[in-house]
Amino acid sequence: MKRVDDVMDTSNVYSYGIDLSKIKLDFSKEPKKHKAPAKRYVCIDLEMTEFTASQRGFVPGANGEVIQFGAVMLDENYNMLSEFSSYVKPVYSSVTPIINQLTGIENKNLEKADDFLTVFDKFCYWRGEGDITTFCWSKADFNQLWAELEAKGKHRYDLFGILHDFVDLQNIFGKLVSSKTSVGLESAMRLLQMDYKGQVHTALSDSYNTARILHKLFCTESLELDFEYINPSKEIPVNKKKEDAEYNCSFASFLSPKLLAQFGYSNTIEETESDDYSFENAAEDLQALEESPLYGMVDNEEIAGLCSKYKIEVQSWLKLATEVMDTQEMQVA
């Protein structure tokens, strides 16, 4: 449905000679927290190529280029309004066999696709203006958008403004379960006793399932959730180590350690974790389920595996899972 009252027209908005460091400082002056319900919510997800070592300098701060952009819009009650999906034609890279294996995207899908700036412009038009909060699963997608805008769209000051209201939903979930490592999207859904819908690692499906988690958490009144906006002056990767950590958080949601190794990356965060919470520890703690409303409803072995993988104390998971168990699924508004 076309929204005449609050759609942003970016067709003739251009500004040159932009000081991007000043933009980052201006962002840091924005309100850091948001408590009141927004008019709309948007959940986004990106799929990307993988740069070779020689290509990384073309988009500093990024490990590849966006090749698929997906987003879902929700109303003030966290129910679905509309969706956005587009392939994106990369400038410097292409789809390798391993990216094809991961996403199902082929180079031929991108031959007639719009470039990044055109797709992002279309996303901004679809998104509209007004009180809108945008959620992504980990800061990696936010960092990717900023890096590509900085490399390809310094003349489009209007597009940078969209990034002032981004929130890391993965971080919110991690705090709720007190996880010591970043929890992947599909794993978070299993911990919430939700089944993934759609094709894993496609941008629209991932954004849709992110929206389902958003709905589940924010419609559980007992959680009384608040959040902080991502601050680009602090969050943009400033060195190789941090870049790799962000990249691993995103890809490790779906990749096995063996497949990650083929990319040349290791799970940096988990490797540096010193206090182990073993499968045996989690399985023993799950005995508490006998006194829980969830008793007999969950796969104890699966939950023990996820809790040990992400260093989540079973009691923290049990508290959240019990609170959200009666919250209804997201609906189409």
Score class of each variant (00 low, 15 high):
Lys241Ala: 08
Cys249Lys: 12
Gln199Arg: 09
Asn143Gly: 09
Gly130Pro: 14
Trp126His: 15
His215Pro: 09
Phe251Thr: 03
Tyr229Glu: 04
Leu191Cys: 03
Val167Leu: 02
Pro232Ser: 01
Gln144Met: 00
His164Val: 10
Gly184Thr: 05
Ser250Met: 11
Leu225Pro: 01
Asp226Lys: 14
Thr181Trp: 08
Ala147His: 00
Cys124Pro: 03
Ala151Arg: 00
Arg156Met: 13
Cys136Gly: 12
Gln144Ile: 00
Thr210Ile: 08
Phe160Gly: 07
Val200Ile: 13
Ile162Asn: 12
Glu224Phe: 08
Phe135Asn: 01
Gly153Asp: 06
Glu221Phe: 10
Leu163Ser: 05
Phe135Cys: 01
Asp121Trp: 15
Phe142Trp: 01
Arg190Val: 14
Leu204Ile: 05
Phe227Arg: 01
Glu224Asp: 14
Ile162Phe: 09
His164Arg: 15
Glu228Leu: 07
Lys234Gly: 04
Gly161Leu: 06
Trp146Gly: 00
Lys175Arg: 13
Leu176Phe: 06
Pro232Arg: 00
Ser222Asp: 12
Ser253Met: 05
Glu224Pro: 04
Met194Gly: 10
Ser233Ala: 01
Ile172Arg: 02
Leu217Ala: 08
Gly128Glu: 02
Ala203Glu: 02
Phe160Thr: 10
Pro237Gly: 02
His164Lys: 14
Phe135Met: 00
Ile132Ser: 15
Gly153Cys: 04
Glu150Met: 04
Phe218Met: 02
Asn171Ile: 02
Leu214Glu: 12
Thr181Met: 09
Pro237Thr: 01
Ile162Ala: 14
Ile162Ser: 13
Gly198Leu: 04
Cys219Asn: 14
Pro232Cys: 00
Trp137Glu: 13
Tyr196Met: 09
Asp165Glu: 07
Asp158Tyr: 06
Asp121Ser: 15
Asp121Ala: 11
Lys152Thr: 02
His215Lys: 12
Ala140His: 15
Lys139Gln: 08
Ile236Glu: 09
Leu149Met: 15
His215Asp: 14
Asp165Ala: 04
Gly130Thr: 12
His201Val: 09
Phe173His: 03
Tyr208Glu: 11
Ile230Thr: 08
Lys234Pro: 00
Asn209Tyr: 10
Asn248Cys: 12
Ser138Thr: 06
Ser205Phe: 05
Asp244Arg: 10
Asp141Tyr: 07
Tyr125Glu: 15
Ile213Thr: 09
Glu235Met: 10
Leu217Tyr: 05
Glu243Met: 11
Gln170Gly: 12
His201Met: 03
Asn209Pro: 08
Val167His: 07
Trp146Val: 03
Gln199His: 11
Ser179Ala: 15
Ile132Pro: 15
Glu150Val: 02
Asp226Glu: 14
His155Tyr: 09
